[in-house]
Design a protein around this nucleic acid. Sequence first.
DNA 1: GCTTGTGAACGTTTTCACAGCG
DNA 2: CGCTGTGAAAACGTTCACAAGC
Lengths: 223, 223
Amino acid sequence: MSLPKDKTPETITVGDAPKAVVNRLSFYLRELQNLLASGTATISSSQLGKRLGFTDAQIRKDLAYFGHFGYPGVGYRCDELIAKIKSILGTDRFWPVVLVGVGNLGRALLRYKGFDKQGFRIVAALDSDPDKIGRLIEDIPIHGLNEIQAVVSSRGIRLAIIAVPANDAQTVANDVVAAGVVGVLNFAPVTLILPPHVHNVGVDLAMELEQLSFAVVNSPPKS
Amino acid sequence: MSLPKDKTPETITVGDAPKAVVNRLSFYLRELQNLLASGTATISSSQLGKRLGFTDAQIRKDLAYFGHFGYPGVGYRCDELIAKIKSILGTDRFWPVVLVGVGNLGRALLRYKGFDKQGFRIVAALDSDPDKIGRLIEDIPIHGLNEIQAVVSSRGIRLAIIAVPANDAQTVANDVVAAGVVGVLNFAPVTLILPPHVHNVGVDLAMELEQLSFAVVNSPPKS
DNA sequence: GCTTGTGAACGTTTTCACAGCG
DNA sequence: CGCTGTGAAAACGTTCACAAGC
C-alpha cells in the first residue's frame, strides 16, 4: 500500500481496505467453510482461486491487507483462515438484527436458515399491519412500528433489514436510524438517503435480473 | 474510449462496458423511473448524482459509453433516457423467467411484485417436492424438476432463478443450463461453476450482512 | 519441489477541467 | 449562463514475477 506519511502508523486500519477486497473476503469465507466441512484442512491460493474464479495473486494480495495468514509451501489452514476472516468481518460475534416489514419477502427472511451460521439472527420483527402485530413467526414476535426504539435499544441491535414497500422505505429507514441502528440492508427498490455514519447495503431483485439481461443480450452472438 | 485500431468499428459493442458502469445504469434507470413518476421531466447529471451518491462526471461518462443522450444547458429528458437505458439493458422486451425451488424464499419471489415493472415475469416454477408439484402459487403452476427441458424450451425461457438449498444448487444449475438457460440468478450460498456462455449473478443474504458488519466494526470510532 | 508475500508494472476506472453548445 | 461530452491526469485495483521460506 502507499506509504504512510501519516505520523501514526496505527491509524492504517483495516477499514481502508478496498470494498472489492472486503467483498471477496466473504467469498473466501464461504468457500473455506464448505471446504472445511468436506474435510479439507489446508488450501493454496491457486486452488481456492480456481474454485471461485479469482487469480491466486489476487487472493494473496487481498489477505495480505490484513496480515500474514499463509504458510509458504503449504497454503492456508482452513480453520485458521476462517477464524481470521470472521474476525476481520466482525462476524466472530453475534449480531442481533431487526426486520422491518413482514410481507412476502420479510416472512421468507424470518424463516431463512442461512443467517445463523454466519453470526446473524433476526431477533425481532416490526410491521405496521395491526393484523400481524402480536403474532409469532418462527418464534419471533411481531411488534408495531412504534416500538422500534424500545426493541432496538433493549436488545442492543445495530443492524436492520428493511423489507417494506418502496414508498415506506425512506420513512422506515429514518426511524430505525433514529432508534440507533447503524447498518441497513435494504430490499426496497429505492436509494435511501442516510446520515454518513450509517452504512447501507441495497439488494434490488429486479436489478439483479437486469444485469443478467444485459449480459445475455450482449453476449458473443452464437457462442 | 481508446481508439479502434480494429478494422471493424461495428465490433466496438456496448458489451465492452465495464461491469460497474452497467450496474450503475440500473441505478440510473430506477431513479429516473421514480423521478418521472413524480412529475420530473428533465434532470441534470449533477442533480441525479446527488440523489444517488455519484459524481456528475461519472454519470455523464457512463452514459457516454452508449451514446449522446443529453442536452447541453438542459440535462437529460427522463422519459427518453429511461427508454435508452432499457434498450441498453435489454429490458425493453419481456423476459420470461423460470424459478427453481419453491421454499420460503422461492414463494416470496413468486409473489414479488417488483419484477413485472422491469420486464421480468416468473412464468413457471419447479420443485422436487411431490407435495408441491401440481399446485398453483399466484397462478403459476409448479412442475417437477424433470420437466425443466419442456418448460424452458416451450416458453422460450433464457433466465432462471435458483432458490434451492445449497447442496442442490450446482445440480439444479447444471440441469437448467442443459435445458437452454443462459442466465442464472442464484440465491444459494455457493459459488456455481457454469460454462462460459452462461451468465451468473449471485445473491447471498448472509454475505450482504457480513459487508455491513465489516463496515460497522471498522467505522470511525465515535463518529 | 511448492507456495506465500510483495514491490513494481500494468491496466482500468474515476475525477478533473474545459471546449462547445443550446 | 448552465450543462453536456470528452481528452488528459490522477487514483485505484489487478497482475506479474520473483525473493524468501517450508
